Amino acid sequence: MINRRNALLLAPALALSRPALAQATRFPDRPIRLIIPFAAGGSNDIVGRVITDGMATRLGQTFVVENRGGAGGVLGNEAVAQSPKDGYTILLGGSGSFLISSLVQPRVPYDIIKDFAPIGFVGNAPNVITVNPQVEAKTMGELRDLARRARPPLAYASPGVGTTGHVLGALLSLEFGAEMEHIPYRGTGPAITDVLAGRVQILTNAAAPLRPHIAAGGLRAVAVAAPRRLDFLPEVPTTVEQGFPNVLSSTWYGLLAPTGTPADRVTALHAALNATLADAAVKQRLQEEGVEIEPSPTPADYGRFIEQDRKRWQEVVTRANIRAE
């Protein structure tokens, strides 16, 4: 039993221990690692580095970016799922590398709902449906009619099996009620090259890499697969405007940690992310990549979005029988 005399003797020691305890539990007190499941140089890499630069300023700690591509994003995702649950290893998740890969890869060593703790949503890069200018279709209706009568079938290019471009092409085929051939490439660049050359008729992708080719006339934009028009392609009508409300697709980005990461650390990361997204310079840089910023009010809101988007694309993947070999 601690009497008054002992309590007075212990008081200085307790007082000295409080700053040490506070320092020991401060987060973050060392660099945070962001894993990007793509090679350096692409849109995912740019978005990840812009976000972490801003978060580092707000958290007072550096971020180390690690590009870990391979297996459609599975390798990078797995590395985060298996990392310590302490908030010091996080993932830049995306529509293709995180969500769609989990639906089409034959063996995925994690569950995107059970094994990851959502931190926050970054934003969407709505996909644009484009064709080679020699294709006699300027609207979604004309493209549908052409797809239905084309012999051999129209072909659509994608950056690879299980990418957002792949499943959007499959969704077009389902909505058009027409057979279409999928031609996968190793990245967006080679896919664009073959569509520009006329070897493949259709390409769907985020707007940023397509925009210069649309402006130069090498690609014709048929529609934006979104509810509203893009600010930097205001002349391109949406799929919704053209009577195809189910044809919606975007390349989205968000941050995740392993499930079991302490809630207060997830909250701290979420707050730093949203503060970064509110910065004018960050907004401008992401808009240059075609990203429409859409911060999530809470980590749970981002989690609900993932569940809803997964359910929507699961239906498309099942109907189109998409599987990565």
Results as ranks from 00 to 15, higher is better:
Phe121Gln: 12
Ile183Asn: 07
Val64Asp: 15
Phe38Leu: 05
Val161Tyr: 13
Ile46Ser: 10
Pro133Tyr: 05
Trp313Pro: 07
Ile51Pro: 03
Asn77Lys: 01
Arg5Asp: 15
Asn205Ile: 03
Leu154Val: 12
Arg199Leu: 13
Asp194Leu: 10
Val222Gly: 11
Ala157Pro: 12
Leu10Lys: 06
Ile113Phe: 03
Ile293Thr: 08
Arg220Glu: 10
Thr188Leu: 06
Ala221Asn: 08
Ala263Cys: 11
Leu10Ser: 13
Thr259His: 01
Glu289Leu: 15
Leu21Thr: 09
Ala22Ser: 12
Arg107Phe: 03
Arg151Asp: 15
Arg229Glu: 10
Val200Cys: 09
Ala275Ser: 15
Ala300Gln: 04
Ala150His: 13
Glu179Asn: 11
Thr267Phe: 01
Asp264Leu: 02
Gln61Lys: 04
Val131Tyr: 14
Pro295Leu: 04
Gly94Trp: 00
Thr25Glu: 14
Arg18Ala: 15
Asn132Ile: 04
Ser249Trp: 01
Arg58Val: 12
Ile322Glu: 14
Gly160Thr: 10
Thr239Val: 10
Gly218Glu: 05
Gln61Gly: 13
Pro126Ile: 08
Val122Thr: 03
Gly290Thr: 06
Val74Thr: 15
Leu256Ala: 12
Leu172Gly: 13
Ala324Phe: 01
Leu256Gly: 03
Leu8Ala: 02
Pro28Asn: 12
Ala257Trp: 01
Val195Asp: 10
Thr267Ile: 02
Asn77Val: 04
Gly243Trp: 02
Leu273Val: 02
Ala11Glu: 11
Arg211Pro: 14
Gln61Phe: 05
Tyr185Asn: 07
